[in-house]
Design a protein around this nucleic acid. Structure first.
Lengths: 138, 138
DNA sequence: GTATATGCAAAGCATTTGCATTAAA
DNA sequence: TTTAATGCAAATGCTTTGCATATAC
């Protein structure tokens, strides 16, 4: 089921040209675009789309659970349409590239007695390292 | 060995009143202060310290490896002086509280064939959930 | 027709930077 | 005395917001 189809199914959410353009850009399984990049790409299809609308739309998609917000390291947030399959991230500390990696069978668990009364909702795992290009550079 | 002692030992780094104040604030094992909070607290000891100097100092401490920068969720970065013991973080998505948790014996490893040529330097694990107070509130 | 989304420009917040002054070594 | 750190204020980068206009339903 594609993002666009899921959005079409909603009756509480108006499907505008701008939102269709944003959804069109957020297609695929290894996409980690910044708001700015989404704006650039969406503009190819709809030149008059504004950055503010891109931000508004992305925030709505995140609130709906249709897109994942990935904030790691410095720099702008990334938006990841791959919400169905649990996965981890691999980031290059040199160039800030961000890749998806399959979640190993062993999702980390909190050690006993370490929950501090929390109800755990999610575990985020981020591998940090140097990509091949940045290894050569350093 | 305390942070202040380690800093005194450096001969390439001038120990000023401001830097001593920042180091004084970053004492203890469960400290996750924002730059602003460090500024507030440091002001108690040294009223004329500026926020810019706090930022400069924190960045230097991070670059030296004496302090950990923790950027998770929205909101400002936190600074964590607990660099010696590897540990994970537990964050409340409601109020943004941040706690240290012991790293389980099983640090997550990248599945075979998923390294994409990267040289891995670090793994960050962040448990997200609701703290007791925020559970009651919701 | 009516509620909602849009674009624009301005505001917001966290952080960094340029530069003249001050202080550590 | 020399070199580096400070404070201030302005600039930056990302993101959000207010409001009049346009558009989906």
């Amino acid at each position: 089921v594609s993002l666009l189809e899921r959005l079409r199914a909603r009756d509480d959410w108006r499907l505008t040209a701008q939102r269709r353009a944003v959804a069109g850009v957020l297609r695929g399984d290894h996409v980690h675009l910044t708001a700015d990049a989404v704006h650039e790409l969406a503009r190819a299809e709809l030149p008059e789309i504004s950055l503010a609308t891109v931000y508004n739309t992305l925030n709505e998609l995140v609130a709906m659970g249709e897109v994942l917000e990935v904030a790691v390291g410095d720099g702008p947030k990334r938006y990841d349409p791959n919400v169905d399959v649990a996965h981890n991230h691999l980031r290059c500390v040199g160039c800030d590239e961000l890749l998806d990696v399959r979640a190993g069978a062993n999702r980390p668990k909190l050690a006993a007695g370490q929950a501090h009364g929390y109800r755990i909702l999610d575990v985020e795992v981020i591998f940090q390292g140097l990509c091949p290009a940045c290894q050569r550079r350093s």
